[in-house]
Design a protein around this nucleic acid. Structure first.
Lengths: 348, 348
DNA sequence: GTCACGCGTGAGAGCGCTCTCCGGGTCGGC
DNA sequence: GCCGACCCGGAGAGCGCTCTCACGCGTGAC
């Protein structure tokens, strides 16, 4: 393969020579630091353009110890996770934010805990300045692993450990699952429903627990028979719905902990001859466009701004990574909980 | 934040000192090269373990000019793209393959062509050894850009340019869209359908064109009124279906160029009072689990092994990147077209 | 016993960049 | 008009690693 780009990439040295300045000055211009007189700046700029100079990141990292790269670690105990548009949207937000700050996104996918060791080594290896972690389960060791690697970390979703542990310095970004769930249930009450069931997500995930807690906040005395656990899949939602109908055929509303599960529930309701929303009102959670708007009928749901959450995660991490600007005045970064919003469509 | 990991990471020098050998020998052991006597190997290994030594990738890259990192570039003119599980699955395959070969995955998302310049700079900057490109549209400039940057590239999906250009050395991996489409239509014929319509994807994408070509291979004389263009969304499939029913209410089968569009078509068929498959048989394309299996009725479709395609892309690229092992005997890498498979469910 | 050969190891030169010093120039103050 | 302060720009020392090259020792052949 006769490589047309055989011309070795120009170095700072070459730029400096062409501009008639020293390497140091060229470096100053390239990095935009103050204290170089305008005419020189101009000459260096021109040399950079003419030569098509691009700084060698490896050399730079070697001396600055900064990578301008962030790892996004995805725990994927279940295959489903990465296929989930939820995650995709969040990554999009992260990517936008990182790009805006000239950081790269290194994606680390794990396939079961066997990969954790590899990820740990990678993080400890100082290849990245920080890590954004997505781990679904409360008992996941990934966050611990990152902390041990000494890498600043932000977690997507509230981690499972109790608040007293939070001064580990591990931050997270999550939406207000509990408040959203309360809104969903209150909406059902407001349209006159009285026998409200809940299809929960897997209860080893904090999001599921929080949504269930929100449900119970409003309906503390609910018959346990009105609560069934799904697994965030359509089929899980379907079988949970079937189970609920068996236990309480008189129910007149369902709050599902995700749109995807709600879509499964809708199918079962239709099959069982119930009309939605006339006989049974349904509220979902997530407002996943590809799901909520295209169910039949379109789903009333709780919206969370997933992309924004991603952006916030990145922003928070970059701030944690940044060399503490103020002299000792670390403004004590804290975790973020974003608001949710009720979106009323036809199903409730 | 009193950083507990204040201990500076050990260097090769430290390992060498502890093992009582030279830096060179330590390096040889770490990189697994031959010609170091067993006892020394053992001593170095132990020193590595005790010190928790992890090689500094930046320093290594600086001298070897290899990054052990691959960029995955996603052109995202439409928001839909990244949300598409199709892409997610492919990335999973890529990730697995890269991980297996100790390469990192750097994700580059572009938001409109404005970002192309940035991506070009990045690729030209030698931060990665190669690039995997996903660009939907035939006229997309991303592949050209990568070629100009002098970075080995593999494209996901057949690129739009004609075959005579292909000796640019730009490789691609695609599934046999045309053959799959032929299978779909032949299946419809085999179950006795005679008036077969096609919902095509956007015809500025090669996948759509190829599937349409496959359709025409089997039914060269089809009434143009039996072909409508969708946009790979459920709503696009729905309106195409509505249009087809208006033009040819007598149709008895539809081959949709994607499962997602087929799902939209199913809804319209139901609304219009047609039974599936009794009145109208429907075949999709992709076999996207979350869609095809959960439509009502479940969709007969053409399966493509998306994850495998991702894996193949990565493998092909790594081979292209590898220092040509054989003496001049470059085995002329070539693009790959993977087979498809008919999956019969209830809809046809 | 001597010489040639070869394998295994060490010394050292960078890879391209940043950043700390310093030196030299310029300007203001008295 | 001279001295000191200030500021801009250059020289040079590494960052941690790989890899070439040269050297030393052990082995086998004559």
């Amino acid at each position: 393969m006769s490589d047309p780009s055989f011309a070795p990439r120009p170095t700072l040295e070459a730029v400096a020579a062409r501009a008639g300045v020293s390497r140091a000055t060229a470096s100053r211009v390239v990095n935009g630091s103050e204290g170089v007189r305008a005419p020189l700046v101009e000459r260096v700029r021109q040399a950079v353009d003419e030569l098509g100079y691009v700084p060698n990141q490896a050399a730079r990292t070697l001396v600055t110890r900064r990578n301008d790269a962030i790892a996004v670690v995805v725990a994927e105990p279940e295959t489903r996770f990465f296929t989930d548009p939820f995650f995709a949207q969040q990554v999009r937000g992260i990517s936008k934010e990182l790009t805006a700050r000239d950081n790269q996104l290194v994606l680390l996918l794990t396939e079961g805990t066997a990969d954790y060791e590899r990820v740990g080594r990678y993080l400890a290896g100082g290849h990245v300045d920080g890590a954004l972690i997505f781990s679904l389960h409360t008992d996941d060791s990934l966050p611990t692993l990152a902390r041990r690697a000494g890498v600043p970390t932000v977690i997507g979703g509230r981690p499972g450990w109790t608040d007293s542990d939070s001064d580990h310095g591990t931050l997270y970004v999550d939406c207000d699952n509990r408040g959203g769930a309360r809104d969903a249930v209150r909406h059902l009450l407001s349209i006159g429903r009285r026998t409200i069931a809940h299809i929960a997500g897997p209860l080893d995930q904090t999001a599921s627990v929080d949504r269930l807690d929100g449900f119970r906040d409003v309906l503390p005395e609910t018959d346990p028979a009105l609560i069934a656990e799904g697994d965030f899949t359509p089929e899980g939602g379907a079988s949970a719905m079937a189970e609920l109908l068996r236990r309480r055929p008189d129910l007149d509303a369902v709050f599902a902990a995700s749109d995807v599960m709600a879509s499964g529930a809708l199918r079962v309701l239709r099959t069982s001859g119930r009309r939605v929303p006339e006989d049974v009102a349904v509220v979902g959670f997530d407002d996943m466009v590809s799901v909520a708007e295209w169910t039949d009928p379109p789903l009333t749901t709780i919206r969370q701004d997933i992309e924004e959450m991603g952006r916030l995660m990145a922003r928070l991490l970059l701030r944690a990574v940044a060399p503490s600007a103020g002299p000792q005045s670390v403004p004590a970064l804290s975790s973020i909980v974003t608001p949710t919003q009720l979106v009323v469509r036809a199903s409730a």
